[in-house]
């Protein structure tokens, strides 16, 4: 009587070999630690082995017997220490040990694989970010080093330390703007940079904050391409900026 009837049908299917890899894991694992079910599995194999008897009997080529016996004779004639059948005494335990080692290695490799996949994903994210930053850095350098980039210094008439700004503008490559010595603004107010075109209304080039030293910047803001600039200006506006300048101009610089 089998003490684990829930595995009875599985043992038959295990012997038949119809399980998919995942399906057979549980019964195989159980059989490995259950002598009773292991015996049942051997019996299931025996029943299935008997199925082979239904094939029409055919005789192998007559020469096959001679070939086998010649091969065996050649091996038997070797010195005892080199005879392969001696291997049988340790081959099965060695294979079993190797299987255990392989199973452990397999589990570890799976874990390592997952960890490597996670690291790869992180590296891809970092790589993607670096790529974006690199593109941005190249754009900045391209703008700064272009011979036809306009350099405009913006100043105020106030006493020192003098707030000032430097704009680097190229109609196709974009705009860089750095400000210095700007005073901190009250809550709810922000600096806003404006491109004043040769024709039409000022175009917002973005808002910016300043640090404790009064330094701020606007790097490659989104602007319409090909705009001819007449001047750049900085105004103080409500937080978030406004479509058109409303506040006082703190910096202004004309393109010369």
């Amino acid at each position: 009587m089998n003490g684990h009837p829930q595995f009875d049908e599985d043992l038959d299917l295990l012997a038949l070999g119809t399980f998919e890899a995942e399906e057979k894991r549980a019964p195989e694992s159980h059989v490995g630690g259950c002598p009773e079910c292991s015996g049942k599995l051997e019996e299931a194999r025996g029943r299935l082995a008997a199925l082979a008897l239904i094939v029409p009997l055919e005789s192998p080529p007559a020469a096959a017997r001679d070939r086998l016996l010649r091969r065996a004779r050649a091996e038997a004639a070797r010195p005892l220490g080199t005879r392969p059948y001696g291997i049988g005494r340790w081959l099965i335990p060695a294979l079993a040990a190797a299987a255990v080692v392989l199973a452990i290695v397999s589990v570890r490799l799976t874990q390592q694989n997952r960890e490597l996949a996670r690291r790869l994903s992180n590296l891809q994210a970092v790589s993607s970010r670096l790529e974006e930053e690199s593109v941005r850095e190249r754009a900045v350098m391209d703008l700064l080093t272009a011979p036809d980039t306009l350099k405009i210094t913006l100043v105020s008439g106030a006493a020192r330390p003098v707030p000032e700004g430097k704009a680097f503008y190229h109609p196709q490559k974009g705009l860089l703007f750095y400000a210095a010595n700007l005073p901190a603004l009250p809550t709810g107010r922000t600096y806003q940079l404006w491109l004043v075109p040769t024709k039409g209304n000022p175009i917002s080039a973005g808002v910016f904050r300043v640090d404790a030293q009064g330094n701020g910047e606007v790097v490659l803001p989104t602007l319409p391409a090909g705009i001819a600039a007449a001047a750049f200006a900085v105004t103080v506006e409500p937080s978030g900026g406004v479509p058109q300048p409303t506040g006082p101009k703190v910096l202004i610089g004309a393109v010369t």
């Binding site: 192998p60 080529p61 096959a64 070939r67 086998l68 091969r71 065996a72 091996e75 392969p84 059948y85 001696g86 291997i87 049988g88 005494r89 081959l91 099965i92």
Partner: peptide, 20 residues
């Protein structure tokens, strides 16, 4: 192919008889 299998199986039986 069937003969190859036949040879392999009996050859294995010969080599590993001591562990059967």
């Amino acid at each position: 192919t069937a003969e190859e299998i036949l040879q392999d199986i009996f050859h294995q039986a010969w080599r590993t008889a001591s562990s059967f």
